[in-house]
Design a protein around this nucleic acid. Structure first.
Lengths: 216, 216
DNA sequence: GATCTATTCAACTTATTGGTTGAATAGTAA
DNA sequence: TTACTATTCAACCAATAAGTTGAATAGATC
């Protein structure tokens, strides 16, 4: 194989990874899996695709080895194959964030359509975290919390939040986080808690954003 | 816009970046641009595509704002729009490296088809760099060196190397680097220098790998 | 202003992909 | 074994993308 053929081959291989990232639905699947392993059935439900189609996408992801699976009873449970896939997802989000004005506009629409509420970035949050005296709630589904969460956070999935309000401290700041920047759970949680008179603040970051920041 | 539509929209935007990375030729263009700005004409020559097609790819890159351009005389010079694009390229390469066995095999073929030669990673190189007493040569085209290079490296493009051999130190280790892991220039340079009896070693990294490692 | 050249646009062909529906498979539970 | 369920496979259609060639555009130079 000569130099040119070698080069073509390398970029062909690299583009296999790129291909996987070229479909919105596949990105959504990867994003969901980055929060924890999930069955084909539940992925199909969350993404509102046919099971067959979801399976097909998962096969594509499998083909470029971005995901792995294991069988459990009669479910097939998929998961990301490697931590470097999370880094890739974060990288693509960073680029899109910076370059695509449309995304910024989307975020703004969401922000403006709701009551204004307090929101902090990872950088702003870390001091409060270190000095303690706060409550952190993880409002993602229970399984995702169990697959990994910010140290010291308690799990209150969105659906259960209303029932648990009484048990939350009235005199402490309560930080809520979810799947990250483009997930709406935490924003809704803060809105609900504020309406009930609690001091709620959104932590505008995912578990992975947090991990990445901490390891630096 | 409701939650589901918002979500679809976000992933649609993210996939625009993914789409760009789904074509081998576009990846090659991005990779070339990461070494320094280039005209449409030279990109077309290096990638061996028609100028029209190259231009079309560049339009696609422009559309998702991964590149920018400026006009110079009657050339249009393209460049990456942002440092975060480089991070994205590194991330995709890391994932592909780990996941795609085919890539590993490709590399191995190349290694084996040549004389074995010394090669060091960034991690191994840094000590030698710090303690000095070495020569570092950048064997990429001159313009790429000028767009950015490892501190202390001298520019000797591959084509000129043979002529400059006499001026290189006979008693020092000479480290050669090029565009990175999948570029063949440095390997060829080391082969040539070794054949002439010099103590040549490949630094198996790109300028960006080096920068990334140093900033940590 | 006229000419030259780099770049981009337009039209077209072929190949690939996302999605659907319905059947086949494989693993569980009774 | 039989029945059941989750998942995958197969066949198909519609939409999109990569690449080609040839024409149009716009800057620079004379």
């Amino acid at each position: 194989m000569d130099g040119a053929a070698f080069k073509d081959n390398v970029f062909n291989q690299l583009s296999r990874v790129g291909k996987v990232l070229s479909s919105p639905k596949r990105l959504e699947i990867l994003d969901l899996l980055s929060q924890g392993p999930k069955s084909v059935e539940s992925l199909s439900a969350i993404t509102r695709m046919s099971v067959a189609n979801t399976s097909k996408h998962l096969q594509a992801l499998l083909d470029s080895q971005l995901v792995v699976y294991r069988k459990d009873r009669n479910y097939v449970i998929y998961d990301l194959s490697d931590k470097s896939v999370i880094d890739l997802l974060l990288a693509i989000r960073t680029v899109a964030d910076k370059q695509l004005e449309e995304l910024a506009q989307l975020r703004q629409q969401i922000e403006e359509s709701r009551e204004p509420f307090e929101s902090v970035t990872v950088e702003q949050f870390v001091d409060r975290y270190e000095s303690g005296g706060i409550t952190i709630i993880d409002v993602r589904p229970r399984e995702e919390y169990e697959a990994g969460h910010i140290d010291g956070a308690i799990s209150i999935p969105m659906g259960d939040l209303e029932r648990y309000i009484d048990q939350l401290p009235q005199d402490q700041a309560i930080f809520a986080y979810c799947r990250g920047h483009y997930c709406l759970y935490a924003a809704e949680a803060v809105k609900l808690l504020k309406a009930k008179g609690l001091h709620a603040i959104r932590l505008d970051a995912s578990l992975h954003d947090w991990n990445k920041y901490r390891q630096q």
